[in-house]
C-alpha cells in the first residue's frame, strides 16, 4: 500500500525521521532542566523551611535519587503517556497542557488568520504598485509591527479601547467572570461555545479575543507582508510572467494564476516560522491580557525550576513543530507540484 501511494510513503518517512528529533528533545530537555541553577526543593519547601524540611521535600520530589535513575523513571512514565506532576500548579502536566495549549493556539491562530487577511493583500498590492501610497502604507505598517514590542502595543490598545473609549471588554482573560466556560470539547472557546449553540458565550469569548489577537497580528503581519511583497516582486519580474503577458493573458489571471501561486512558497515558509515563534513569543501578550496560555505557564515553571512542567512544555512544542513542518511540506507539494517528495 505504501508503494502505491508516494505521498503516504513520504509522510510515513517524514514521521519516522522526526523520531530521533523527539528523542533528542527528551534527553536535552531533561538535562537542561537539571542543569538550571537553583534548587526546586528549597523553593517548594516554602518560606520558613529549615534544613530538615527541605530534605523532606527533596525526598518527596524524588530529587535525592541519582540523575540516571531519575531519567529512567522519567522515560518510563513518558512511555506510559505520563508527563509527570507539575509542582507549581499541583496538577498533572498533561492536564495543564490540555487546558492551556488550546488557549494559546486559539489566540495565535486567530492572530495569524487576521495577519494573513491583512498582510497578504497588502503585500500583493504593494508589489503591483511599487512606489505608490499602498507601498508606503505597507512599509509603515511593517516597520511599526516589527518595531513595537507586543507588550507595548497590548497596553496601548488596552489604554485606548478599554480605558479611554470603553468599547472593549475588561482585559480579564478568555472570558469575563460573568460567563461560564463552555463544555470542554476542543478547548477552543469559540468552537466549543458554537458546538453548544451558546452564542452569548461565543460573543463574550470573541470580544475578549479581539484586542490580544490584534496585538499579536500587528506583530506577526510584518514578516508576512514583507515576504509577500518581495516574492511577488521577484515573480512579477520573471520570464514566465513576461511570456504570459506577451501571450495576452488577462491581468488577474497573470497576477493570481501565475505570479501569486509562485510567490506563495516563501510566504508559506514564513507563515510556518511566524506561527512557531508567535506561539512561543506571545508570553508578553498573555501576561498583559491575563490570557491563561502556554507561554506564561512555561515561564512561570522555569522561574521556579518546575522540572516536569518545563519538560512537558518543551516536548509539546517539539511535537507541535514536527507536525507543523510536516504540514508545511505537504502544503508545498499542493502549491507547487514540481516539488516532489522523491527529490528530498
Amino acid at each position: 500500500m505504501l508503494a502505491a501511494s508516494p505521498r503516504l510513503r513520504a509522510t510515513v518517512l517524514r514521521v519516522a525521521q522526526s523520531i530521533p528529533v523527539v528523542i533528542g528533545v527528551v534527553v536535552i530537555s531533561f538535562l537542561l532542566t537539571r542543569a538550571l541553577p537553583g534548587d526546586p526543593a528549597v523553593y517548594f519547601a516554602g518560606v520558613a523551611a529549615d534544613t530538615a524540611s527541605i530534605e523532606q521535600t527533596r525526598v518527596a520530589m524524588g530529587l535525592d535519587k541519582p540523575l540516571p535513575q531519575q531519567f529512567v523513571i522519567y522515560v518510563g512514565d513518558l512511555l506510559q503517556g505520563d508527563l509527570g506532576q507539575s509542582l507549581s500548579s499541583g496538577r498533572s502536566v498533561a492536564a495543564d497542557l490540555a487546558k492551556r495549549l488550546p488557549a494559546s493556539l486559539e489566540l495565535t491562530l486567530t492572530a495569524l488568520l487576521l495577519a494573513i487577511a491583512i498582510a497578504v493583500p497588502l503585500g500583493v498590492l504593494a508589489a503591483t504598485r511599487p512606489g505608490t501610497w499602498v507601498d508606503h502604507l505597507c512599509r509603515v505598517v511593517v516597520t511599526a509591527g516589527v518595531s513595537l514590542p507586543t507588550f507595548f502595543t497590548g497596553i496601548l490598545l488596552i489604554y485606548i479601547f478599554y480605558y479611554l473609549l470603553g468599547v472593549s471588554p475588561s482585559p480579564l482573560g478568555r472570558l469575563d467572570f460573568i460567563y461560564l466556560d463552555p463544555d470542554h470539547v476542543t478547548g477552543f472557546y469559540l468552537i466549543d461555545a458554537a458546538l453548544m449553540g451558546d452564542w452569548e458565550t461565543w460573543r463574550g469569548a470573541a470580544k475578549q479575543l479581539i484586542l490580544p489577537a490584534s496585538t499579536l497580528a500587528l506583530f506577526t503581519l510584518a514578516p508576512i507582508a514583507r515576504m509577500t511583497r518581495a516574492s511577488m516582486l521577484t515573480a512579477l519580474s520573471s520570464d514566465f510572467i513576461r511570456t504570459a503577458r506577451a501571450a495576452g493573458l488577462s491581468n488577474p489571471r497573470v497576477l493570481y494564476g501565475y505570479a501569486f501561486r509562485n510567490a506563495l512558497l516563501p510566504v508559506v515558509t514564513t507563515l510556518g516560522m511566524v506561527f512557531s515563534f508567535a506561539l512561543g513569543a506571545n508570553v508578553l501578550v498573555e501576561k498583559v491580557f491575563a490570557w491563561p496560555g502556554i507561554g506564561s505557564y512555561a515561564v512561570e515553571a522555569l522561574v521556579v525550576s518546575d522540572y516536569a512542567a518545563v519538560q512537558g512544555f518543551v516536548l509539546a512544542m517539539a511535537l507541535l513543530f514536527v507536525t507543523l513542518n510536516l504540514v508545511i511540506d505537504l502544503l508545498y507539494t499542493a502549491i507547487d507540484p514540481r516539488i516532489g517528495f522523491s527529490s528530498k
Binding site: 482585559p171 498583559v288 491580557f289
Partner: peptide, 16 residues
C-alpha cells in the same frame, strides 16, 4: 478572585 499578571492591566481595571 481573578488573576491578572500585568500590573498595568490591573491598574486600568481598578481605575475604570
Amino acid at each position: 478572585i481573578r488573576e491578572v499578571p500585568s500590573p498595568a492591566t490591573r491598574r486600568a481595571l481598578i481605575e475604570r
